[in-house]
Simulated scan of single mutants.
Amino acid sequence: MHNFEKRRDRYNAFASFENPLVNLSFEMEVPDFRPFCKANELPPFHVFLYCILNSLKEIDNFMYRIHEGEVIKIDDFMASYTVLNQDKNLNFARFTRSSDLREFVARSVAAKQFAEASDVLVNTTEALSPMDKKRNVHITCMPWLKLVAMEHPIYHHKNHDIPSLAWGRFSDPRDDGKLTVNMSVLAHHGFVDGYHVHLLAQAIAARVAKIIA
């Protein structure tokens, strides 16, 4: 928590706001990893999700939460994201995050298949303890759309402390070996500034590059 103490006054300032959230939408550039996925029989969504979640964990600012009125730093979070079930209705996949790519993808695919097969809403936070509810990151993807902006659904703005990320359709292949994707990142401004979103984008791109090297 040493790093947080350096910005506690910023947190206190934003915590007094009725809506203390920062919500940025931007175009992110990463190496085109789809040929790598095809060659290794890995689904691109799950590989990209791996890069995002494992990059998030490296940046302290995305790991701060508010629990019982105090700021804490979680040590890890559940991997989860939205899927469509067989009726084309929203459902939630959830699994234990892994730092190993193939293990992560296998768990993610299994969680997706389970959520897709369920008619009822599963993997909600209702059964979780207050502390476990903090060990979360909200993830959604809309691959049909070129995302321009995103307003994430928030139950209560003032106490919201769970980062929310969304992205849309990947661009067509580029001659320079890269692709672009529009990303949306929402977080508590007491914890996260635009600079930290920039760091996250850099970390994701670096992790993609390392995987395909």
Rank of each mutant, 00 (worst) to 15 (best):
A213F: 05
I154N: 00
H160D: 13
S184T: 01
L128D: 01
V185F: 14
S184P: 11
N136L: 14
P173M: 12
I204N: 05
T140L: 08
L147F: 05
H152N: 02
I162L: 06
L200H: 05
V192K: 06
T96C: 09
F26M: 13
H189E: 11
L90S: 10
I52M: 07
I212A: 03
L101K: 10
L49Q: 11
V148W: 04
H196E: 09
I162C: 01
V109T: 09
H160A: 14
D75F: 07
V105R: 00
H152C: 03
I74M: 02
H67L: 10
D176V: 10
V185C: 14
N85S: 11
N89Y: 07
D119L: 10
Q202P: 01
V137E: 06
R10Q: 08
P163G: 06
F36V: 12
G177E: 01
K158R: 09
V22G: 07
Q202Y: 06
E116G: 01
V185Y: 15
K146D: 15
F191A: 00
R94Q: 06
S98T: 14
H160G: 09
L101W: 11
V47M: 12
G194M: 09
M1C: 08
L101E: 12
F26R: 09
K6F: 15
S80E: 00
H46L: 04
H138K: 06
D60G: 04
R207L: 05
N12G: 00
Q202E: 03
N54S: 05
K146I: 14
F104N: 13
I139S: 06
R102I: 07
T140I: 05
S55P: 01
E29G: 07
N19Y: 11
P20H: 12
E29I: 08
